[in-house]
Amino acid sequence: MATTGARPAAPAGPQHEALSSASLAASLLRRTAVLLLTLVVSTAVLVAAWYLLLELLDVDPFVGKRPADVYEYLVRDEDAAANREEILSLLATTLAHSTTGFVAGLAGALAVASLFTLLRPLEFAFMPLAMLLRSVPLVAMAPLIGSISGRGLAGAATIGGIVVFFPVLVNTALGLRSASPQAVDLVRVNGGSRLTALRKVALPSALPNLFAAVRISVPGAVIGAMLYEWLFSGTGLGAEIFRANSQVQYSKLWAIVVVVTFSTIVLYTLVSVLETLVLARWGPDAGRR
């Protein structure tokens, strides 16, 4: 008589792995398409809101330039090529300053959040102090920061880094604390150190929080760089936007605002795409199971 029972599962082979890879690639493609569509829709909404707001408030066209005016300045005007070259050159300087501040703030926040996780008393002692410093307006601290760090890259790293440091610190510390206690205990029982538990469990579990903080910090890094340029270096879009305003060059002023805003949206979208790729590799529940 034939025996009945559960049929053993077939081992996963190359075909199964190829199917999983194809499914993952299709999911990434869909998410990336959604992000790019969001970029296009956001740009269209901003342009429409810009035009409607100026019309509703009846702002003088000499001061409040419309989308068509900026397009004329950057694309169709006889000096459009020179205008684009100047603004893009200034944008490159601002993005370099933004990157310096962003990297400095991100590295500092990750280091401090990791220390808070390894040595919990440090978090209880210094997190309230960090939040107190965060409440001080950056403009009020900027002269002191400039006198200490100078006008070079150290100044850009300090001012931009402060803008990035606090949101990344708070969100990353929260993410590190969300690691599964069972997973941490498993690492410790098998001879792993606190540093091993941090690397294998806590950091992967903090990835969603970390990327959320990074998305918030990208526009902040640009703002910090422009503040540094306005107050100290006299270079980049941060200084040029105030020069254009004082010289009544309103077309250039609005063009700078448009370029900065669009660049920030693009950077935000790129971070979102990177987040999708990383979380597809690690999973949103990495380190928690």
Rank of each mutant, 00 (worst) to 15 (best):
D79T: 13
D79N: 10
A80F: 05
N83A: 03
N83D: 03
E85Y: 10
L88K: 09
L88A: 14
S89H: 13
L91G: 12
A92N: 09
T93K: 11
T93H: 08
T94R: 05
T94I: 07
A96H: 12
A96Y: 13
H97A: 15
H97N: 10
H97T: 07
H97I: 03
H97W: 12
S98G: 11
S98N: 06
S98K: 02
T99V: 07
T99Y: 09
T100P: 01
T100D: 10
G101V: 00
G101H: 00
F102K: 01
F102E: 02
F102L: 05
F102D: 00
A104Q: 04
A104E: 02
A104T: 05
L106T: 07
L106H: 00
G108W: 06
G108A: 07
G108R: 12
A109F: 01
L110A: 03
L110N: 04
A111F: 13
A111Y: 14
A111W: 14
V112G: 00
S114T: 09
S114Y: 13
S114P: 02
L115Y: 10
T117V: 09
L118M: 11
L118G: 03
P121R: 11
L122P: 02
E123W: 13
E123V: 10
F126S: 12
P128S: 04
P128I: 10
L129G: 06
L129D: 10
M131W: 14
M131A: 08
M131K: 15
L132T: 07
L133G: 11
S135A: 06
V136A: 05
V136L: 09
P137N: 10
L138K: 09
L138M: 13
L138F: 01
V139A: 13
A140G: 12
M141Q: 05
A142Q: 03
A142Y: 02
A142K: 00
A142N: 04
P143M: 15
P143F: 12
L144N: 12
I145G: 02
G146N: 06
G146K: 00
I148E: 12
S149M: 09
S149C: 15
S149V: 12
G150A: 15
G150M: 08
G150K: 04
R151Q: 15
R151P: 09
G152P: 15
L153N: 08
L153K: 08
G155M: 06
G155F: 05
A156F: 01
A157W: 01
I159D: 00
G160K: 09
G160C: 07
G160I: 03
G160P: 05
G160Y: 01
G160N: 03
G161W: 02
I162V: 15
I162G: 02
I162E: 00
I162W: 00
V163K: 08
V164Q: 04
F165I: 05
F166E: 04
F166R: 00
F166Y: 11
P167D: 10
P167T: 08
P167L: 12
V168W: 03
V168I: 06
V170E: 00
V170K: 11
V170D: 02
V170N: 08
N171T: 11
T172V: 12
A173V: 13
A173Q: 07
L174Y: 14
L176E: 09
R177W: 12
S178F: 07
S178K: 13
S178L: 05
A179L: 06
A179Q: 08
S180A: 09
P181M: 11
P181W: 01
Q182D: 14
V184Y: 02
V184F: 11
D185Q: 06
D185Y: 11
L186F: 13
L186D: 06
V187D: 05
V187I: 12
